[in-house]
Design a protein around this nucleic acid. Structure first.
Lengths: 202, 202
DNA sequence: ATTAAAGGTAAGTATCACTTACTTAAGTAT
DNA sequence: ATACTTAAGTAAGTGATACTTACCTTTAAT
């Protein structure tokens, strides 16, 4: 993979910078080209459309994020501790890069072709890592086996994202420690009071 | 509140219908006007912009939804059972009205003025109802008190939404029963194996 | 009957994502 | 070196679209 042409790099860089201050829809291609110091047409030499440019920015972010996560997981033993690390790291990432929190939660998903993008490929890899941790936990008795693993994953990321959503939109500071502690308690121990929580609600 | 002018009603109806088949961005104002049998200009007599029209459709949906939820909650005793009802009803609503699932999760939130809309006012009322149920549960010993109520709410809706997301985007059928059962187990009982789940992970 | 407001229309306009047709630079094989 | 091919980059559109403006028409209260 030889390095990308200067123009392409400048375009991605410009778009990434613009995303700091405004949302996807309000960034124009003209503006992007001007910031990059190239002509508008060049954008379409390298990207199918404006969204593909967004996906590229997102992909680069996920690439760094995955490297970080894999580093964070090194040396951690046991599914529960690993999942706790995942929760904390994901929250920290959202807190430190609110632009990407916004992109992930609000801008990327609402087009079907995001799910064909190479950014989403990385998301899938991340999902796979988590599923394997959950399976590991089931195998060694840490995690209950009567819940479908994919729902556990949904609960983890759903909780994280919902807790970060308004912060990402209104650019408020997120206290990743408090959020992660609360989410962790809920998901691991349940919200029911007391040790014997086999109460039947049917 | 006297009844809205015919034109306004037709516009909202047309837009609601169009949302069944295409997403917000790909519906044009011209198309909306034509479907409604009015001119484009009339849309802007009643709505500040295209988004305001989306919020109106959403508001009408939430109004019906809230009535339904309040009916579902009637006669149900105890916070846990009430929350379970909330989970089931919300999931059923997403499963039966995937258009609205999509609007809520993907189309409405990514503009700040959604949070000033009267649709969002209803969401806030719904949130309030849930917070009160959680507080009730804490008061009568059903729900642990060492978790901030708002995070419990985040976990509930985050889990629901994340589990429905891809279904809403790709219009797959959602099995609301299976999802609700899984979410319910996770949130109420926790994912940790065994009754004594006071394992310390620090 | 008069008048003011509300309901509704017709014809724009500016903006924007994307195209097309072209030029220039960089490789590469002969 | 020369001829040729491909990639990088430009300039000038174009059609579509959200929204505006200026106008006409109906309704209903005084």
């Amino acid at each position: 993979m030889k390095d990308a042409p200067k123009g392409k790099i400048k375009i991605v860089k410009a778009f990434r910078e613009l995303l700091n201050d405004k949302n996807f829809n309000s960034i124009t291609t003209a503006e992007t080209a001007k910031t990059a110091g190239v002509t508008e047409g060049l954008i379409y030499k390298y990207f199918k459309d404006k969204r593909a440019l967004l996906y590229e920015v997102l992909r680069e972010h996920y690439e760094k994020f995955l490297i970080q996560i894999e580093k964070d997981l090194l040396g951690i033993e046991g599914a529960s501790k690993k999942l706790k690390t995942i929760i904390t790291s994901s929250l920290q990432s959202y807190a430190n890069h609110r632009v990407f929190a916004r992109i992930v939660m609000l801008e990327a998903r609402n087009s079907e072709d995001y799910f064909d993008s190479s950014a989403y490929k990385l998301v899938q890899r991340y999902n796979q890592i988590i599923l394997e941790i959950i399976e590991e936990g089931k195998a060694n008795g840490e995690i209950r086996e009567d819940i479908d693993s994919s729902y556990i994953r949904h609960a983890i990321f759903g909780s994280i994202e919902h807790a970060c959503l308004k912060g990402a939109i209104f650019e408020q500071t997120l206290s990743s420690f408090a959020i992660s502690e609360n989410i962790y308690r809920i998901l691991f121990e349940g919200i029911t009071q007391g040790t014997s929580n086999n109460y039947n609600f049917d």
